[in-house]
């Protein structure tokens, strides 16, 4: 019997082999490219998605566990969600996971977005391998505090090094 995954409000019937992780099923069968297989052992958080509203490591869940359960990925952040501003066109390995980590926590704690320190501590749960962790973290922290629908341009210049900066 196949498993029905409800990903970003779309239904997908996926292979029910119990060996498949949720991450593998999302990427292979559900048109999701934002959740990444970074470490595949739960350390890095690049695969973070919302399952039933909670930010979880999709590499540490099995697809069969999610039969009929609502899954949300970075593609499925609604148009007005402030964290959309932290998702420019390209997806670095870690950024969608950081965004979904923040999105899950903001669902549980409405005041979180107004507390950059706490948000920054939360984002320490995910790793980044491209040395831009602080810059990406800052953009997520700043986007979280934006009014709905604002664009990243509305926040003004970053208070850290530009991601385009060449150096050192």
């Amino acid at each position: 019997m196949p498993v029905r995954l409800v990903v970003n409000e779309n239904n997908y019937e996926v292979d029910a082999d119990p060996r498949r992780s949720l991450l593998a099923a999302l990427r292979a069968d559900c048109e999701v490219t934002s959740a990444h297989a970074g470490c595949a052992d739960g350390t890095c958080g690049a695969c973070t998605v919302l399952v039933d509203g909670d930010a979880v490591r999709s590499c540490l869940m099995l697809a069969v566990q999610c039969d009929g359960v609502a899954v949300r990925t970075a593609e499925g952040l609604t148009a007005g969600h402030p964290l959309r501003a932290a998702l420019p066109g390209g997806h670095e390995l870690c950024r969608p996971g950081l965004v979904m980590l923040a999105a899950g926590a903001m669902r549980h704690d409405g005041d979180l977005a107004a507390d950059p320190g706490q948000m920054s501590r939360l984002l320490a749960a995910n790793l980044c391998t491209c040395a831009d962790h602080d810059q990406i973290k800052r953009s997520v922290v700043r986007a979280a505090s934006l009014p709905p629908g604002a664009s990243i341009a509305a926040i003004g210049p970053s208070d850290g090094p530009s991601p385009d900066a060449t150096g050192p």
């Binding site: 973070t48 909670d54 490591r57 540490l60 869940m61 320490a124």
Partner: peptide
């Protein structure tokens, strides 16, 4: 762990 681990 951290929040995603503690959620599960």
């Amino acid at each position: 762990g951290h929040p995603p681990i503690r959620a599960r």
